[in-house]
Design a protein around this nucleic acid. Sequence first.
DNA 1: TTCACATGTTAGAAAACATAACATTTCGTT
DNA 2: AACGAAATGTTATGTTTTCTAACATGTGAA
Lengths: 128, 128
Amino acid sequence: MTNRVRRTMPLLPISIVMQLTELTARQIRYYEEHKLISPARTEGNKRMFSLNDVDALLEIKDYLDQGLNIAGIKKLYDLKETPKNEKAEPKSLSDSELRKLLHEELKHQARPFEKGGFRQGDLSRFFN
Amino acid sequence: MTNRVRRTMPLLPISIVMQLTELTARQIRYYEEHKLISPARTEGNKRMFSLNDVDALLEIKDYLDQGLNIAGIKKLYDLKETPKNEKAEPKSLSDSELRKLLHEELKHQARPFEKGGFRQGDLSRFFN
DNA sequence: TTCACATGTTAGAAAACATAACATTTCGTT
DNA sequence: AACGAAATGTTATGTTTTCTAACATGTGAA
């Protein structure tokens, strides 16, 4: 009975994701357009979302509520994806550029990091 | 991260359920027509399935594979739903009638009960 | 063979979703 | 105050998905 769902499996149509996240279709598509999520597509080109996608959307929503903008969230994700390149080759954006960007966003009230990682989006708001 | 999904929440469109169960839309609708499942409906009348519905469909599929027919499966469910009425009022079908029906179906190779209950349909075939 | 059950197939209508364009709101900046 | 950019709303139009209903087919039991 206690199934750990394969959270990457594309199962949910956008209508359900709208309910789960309280986001509009417009918002969800906009976030995809800006590469914050990449939901799967059916053969007929309809978006199908995984539980991970829903978590990501909830996280995005939180960050936006905290005053971050799309670009800022994107940067956070880019950082998150390359945590091991401590002395690696320079990215497309210089470190100073990146820091400047983050600073701009974070001066409002957001605190992007908690020591050790990000707050995970949590579907348990809806499931139990 | 370990979310216990609310398994009764209608989340899945029929196309996904078809993939998960390897049943055709025709089959799924037929089982509903015969009251083996009762998926939710959207405002626009589209079926939306819960994880429990998927489990039920997998169970139905198993029973059919074992030689039961729809009527037999229905009886099993009806029995399952009233386990406490040991001396209750007679149902719409008499006990003998019911036993006869079951016997008819089960003489093939099916064994409807395992001691203590039914085999639960298990979504872990697809999730982990 | 015949009949009933389970499923396949097709047609036509409606719902859901897609993209794209333009409008609106909200803020920070000038 | 006006401007410009970001995020979202709104509308139009086309395609995909799902619906019901009807009829066809395959298969096993009588």
